[in-house]
């Protein structure tokens, strides 16, 4: 169930930040291996992102699944668009597609020299 207040709150985060990761735990202290893996990829490519800890808010934890029609967490949004969860981010990173996507949207990354 996704009530309007929760939907608005999620929408605000997604619209207000270029790169948003809904995750379990925080970027510094992820509390799930899948969330940690995505944080690792984002940190590695040097992109700034906002982490939202769904464990702090059960309405967001459940609501985000309806918001995106995606039943699992983590979930990554770039410029308001749902990109995927852990498997997809990993695959895209390995194929070089994640950098392409970020570049294409004008988001700065810092690729290791």
């Amino acid at each position: 169930m996704l009530d309007q207040a929760t939907r608005d709150r999620i929408q605000q985060e997604v619209d207000g930040n270029d790169v948003v990761l809904f995750m379990k735990g925080t970027p510094v202290f992820p509390q799930c291996g899948f969330s940690a893996a995505v944080v690792g990829v984002l940190s590695h490519i040097g992109v700034k992102f906002k982490g939202i800890n769904v464990l702090e808010d059960p309405s967001v934890r459940d609501g985000i699944k309806d918001f995106s029609s995606w039943p699992t967490i983590p979930q990554l949004y770039v410029k308001g668009e749902f990109v995927g969860g852990c498997d997809i981010i990993r695959e895209m990173y390995e194929a070089g597609e994640l950098n392409e996507l970020l570049d294409g949207k004008g988001i700065q990354t810092q690729v290791d020299a």
């Binding site: 995606w70 749902f82 969860g85 695959e91």
Partner: peptide, 14 residues
């Protein structure tokens, strides 16, 4: 797309 593929699997296993 990657997202659509995974959604399809999620749907079958909802």
């Amino acid at each position: 797309s990657r997202v659509e593929r995974q959604r399809l699997v999620y749907k079958v296993l909802s």
